[in-house]
């Protein structure tokens, strides 16, 4: 009995200390932002039903999307390599093959109408001051503009993989990959690092990457960080809420609101876990076994003690 009382005292003081230096201190040190469920409540709902076939014509034609973006799935290659694109636009306009699955529909519509507004970078790009966003606004192709936008969104959604089929690589590469390297996953802003056969190829690749990063740094004001183990340094909650609205944490930051759907964001998180916490499944399964082992060990230790101490008391 007395031992249990002493144990209770030790445990209580330990828990108080733990509470103070961990949850309590961290709640004071970091701003807490509640997630909004990727609702993008400030953007108007997409209530027109789009026609994918008309959308296709617009994307390839009046919308001019393919002038800058590849849609490799539809056989539309990129006009330039990533480095040259970054040198022209600041960053490589992403391949839109999976855009319909990665981005929220109403976000895409808002993006097409006014990129700087949807991306929440109006503090950097202000048409009135002559600072144009590199992706132009769509002013309409002569008909009902809202309908045209809805058609384009419908087209992008029609060619995209279904939500369940979207892979974590596809989600990360489209949503974050043009800005954020992930060296533990072998990803660079100009693509997956290949296996090099010749030293020259490696040098060429690294040169192209360095040039890309220079252009990107100029465009963003700083090089976006490598996200390899951000899942450990920032944690899931922070990353999720940060992506939803970067301005909520870092007012004035150059990182745009990328407008991912909640499902695509889960895929992005999975990608970040694969690079930064690759052995999590093994940890959980080994953990369970070790816990069982220690419980059995404790039981035997107890029986041994009991049998010896019978003679002592």
């Amino acid at each position: 009995m007395r031992e249990l009382k002493i144990l209770a005292v030790v445990v209580v003081f330990t828990l108080i200390t733990y509470y103070l230096v961990e949850p309590f201190a961290h709640s004071h040190m970091h701003k807490h932002v509640e997630g909004e469920g990727y609702a993008y409540a400030d953007l108007p709902a997409l209530d027109k039903k789009g026609d994918a076939a008309r959308g296709k014509e617009l994307v390839m034609g009046a919308g001019a999307c393919t002038g800058c973006h590849a849609i490799s799935k539809e056989g539309m290659p990129a006009g330039m390599d990533p480095t040259m694109a970054a040198q022209s636009y600041g960053v490589n306009p992403p391949d839109l093959s999976n855009a319909g699955a990665v981005y929220e529909g109403k976000f895409l519509a808002a993006l097409i109408k006014n990129p700087a507004h949807a991306l929440m970078v109006e503090h950097k790009f202000d048409a009135a001051k002559g600072k144009m966003h590199p992706m132009p606004q769509f002013y309409g192709a002569g008909g009902d503009k809202d309908q045209e936008v809805a058609d384009m969104v419908a087209y992008l959604q029609s060619i995209a993989p279904k939500t369940e089929e979207l892979t974590s690589e596809q989600a990360y590469q489209l949503a974050c990959g043009r800005c954020h390297e992930n060296r533990y996953a072998g990803w660079t802003q100009i693509g997956q690092t290949p296996k090099f056969k010749k030293k020259q190829d490696e040098l060429k690749f690294n040169l192209a990457k360095a040039d890309y990063q220079d252009a990107l740094t100029k465009y963003m004001g700083k090089l976006p960080p490598d996200l390899s183990i951000y899942i450990r340094s920032r944690g899931e909650h922070y990353i999720k809420t940060f992506v939803e609205n970067p301005q909520a944490y870092l007012a004035g930051t150059a990182m745009p609101r990328v407008g991912v759907s909640p499902e695509a964001m889960d895929k992005v998180i999975e990608y970040l876990e694969d690079s930064g916490d690759a052995k999590r499944h093994e940890r959980e399964s080994v953990g369970k076994k070790v816990m069982i082992f220690t419980l059995v060990f404790a039981l035997f230790a107890y029986l041994w003690k009991k049998s010896l101490w019978k003679e002592l008391h």
Binding site: G287, M291, F297, A298, Y302, K305, L308
Partner: peptide
């Protein structure tokens, strides 16, 4: 040994439950 040791080992075993819980979870 083994009187004190057996009690030590029991305490150690309880400690290990706590320790490995922290390590894994």
């Amino acid at each position: 040994a083994n009187d004190f040791m057996s009690k030590d080992m029991f305490v150690v075993s309880i400690y290990l439950i706590f320790f490995f819980y922290l390590v894994f979870f």
